[in-house]
Structure formats: structure tokens, C-alpha cells
């Protein structure tokens, strides 16, 4: 498992190659990359990501561990950037390896859904008209809740 919280950019190709070469049992690598995008008509100039050092890493480890326990996956890489980002910059990478694609797809989506509602990151958008904190969305809560295990 590789969990990184960093201000520097990451190279998706390098990360996927590292994962791919780690075991001969890997039959599938599924990855997700989140980007800074235009949200409103009000053009974003920059995006600042704040986090809670210590809790962020712990939270990401726990989410990755849950995915490893729940699905038959081999390894997980999560890289999340913090600090100041620009439009179209990469924010987050989640990559999962498994023997078969189905488990890797599910685990990757689960990790992203949980990350968006559990990991202590906060986005602030800076536009030409000022700055504002991004509000949490109920659609993200719903996406996370659908993974809850039924008794």
C-alpha cells in the first residue's frame, strides 16, 4: 500500500508501472485521476487544498485497508495533492491492482467515494470575483452510503 499527501504533481504512468511490476499475479490495474475543473461561469484561477496533517494519512490508510479487506485486490496507491493548484491540474490518483478487473473497479470506486466524504481535505476556489470554500455535496454522501454493508 502506498499513501502520499504531497504538494508536488505525480506521474500516473510511473505510478502504474510501479504497481504493475510489483507482482506477477496482477491481471488488472484500475486507476482514477481527479482534476481541477471549471465549476461555474465564474472562472477559477486557482484552487487551494487544505488538510489535517496526521489525520489525513490515517484516514486514507484506513480507507485503503477497508478496500483490501473487502475485495480480492492486491495493492492500492493513493496520492492526494495539497496546496495551490491550477485549472486542469491533477488533484488525486487512486490505483488498484487485482487478478481480475471486477474487484479492482469496485475497490477503486469505493476508495474515491469514501475519500470524498471521510478524508479531511477542504477546497477553496479563487476566482476573479474573490474566494470561497467549496461546499460539501449531498450526492457525495449518497455515493459513499451505497457501500455500507447491510445487516
Amino acid at each position: 500500500m502506498k499513501i502520499l499527501v504531497q504538494s508536488e504533481d505525480f506521474d500516473v504512468s510511473d505510478e502504474l508501472n510501479l504497481l504493475r511490476q510489483s507482482s506477477p499475479n496482477i491481471g488488472a490495474v484500475v486507476s482514477f485521476v481527479g482534476l481541477v475543473r471549471e465549476l461555474n461561469e465564474d472562472a477559477i484561477q486557482t484552487l487551494t487544498l487544505e488538510h489535517y496533517p496526521g489525520m489525513t494519512e490515517k484516514s486514507l490508510h484506513e480507507i485503503a485497508q477497508q478496500a483490501l479487506t473487502r475485495w480480492d485486490v492486491l495493492d492500492v496507491t493513493i496520492i492526494h495533492r495539497v496546496g495551490t493548484l491550477r485549472l486542469q491540474d491533477q488533484i488525486v490518483l487512486v490505483a488498484v491492482t487485482s487478478a481480475h478487473r471486477h474487484n479492482a473497479f469496485l475497490a477503486c470506486e469505493f476508495i474515491m467515494d469514501y475519500l470524498k466524504t471521510q478524508a479531511p481535505f477542504w477546497k477553496k476556489e479563487h476566482t476573479q470575483h474573490g474566494e470561497h470554500w467549496v461546499e460539501a455535496k449531498s450526492i457525495d454522501d449518497k455515493a459513499s452510503q451505497r457501500w455500507e454493508l447491510k445487516n
Binding site: Y52, V92, K116, P120, W122, E135
Partner: peptide, 24 residues
């Protein structure tokens, strides 16, 4: 660790307050 309002506080604890998270 995320907690609810009834979670008890002990000496030396680190308590944090923040808005709902918006990463990813």
C-alpha cells in the same frame, strides 16, 4: 478519528473542529 457529539474527551486529547470535507 471522526467522532459524534457524544464522544467523551480525555486529558491530553487533540480535538479538531472542521466543516464537512471536500477533497478528491
Amino acid at each position: 478519528t471522526l467522532v459524534d457529539n457524544l464522544a467523551s474527551i480525555q486529558t491530553g486529547d487533540e480535538v479538531a473542529f472542521f466543516p464537512p470535507v471536500t477533497g478528491g
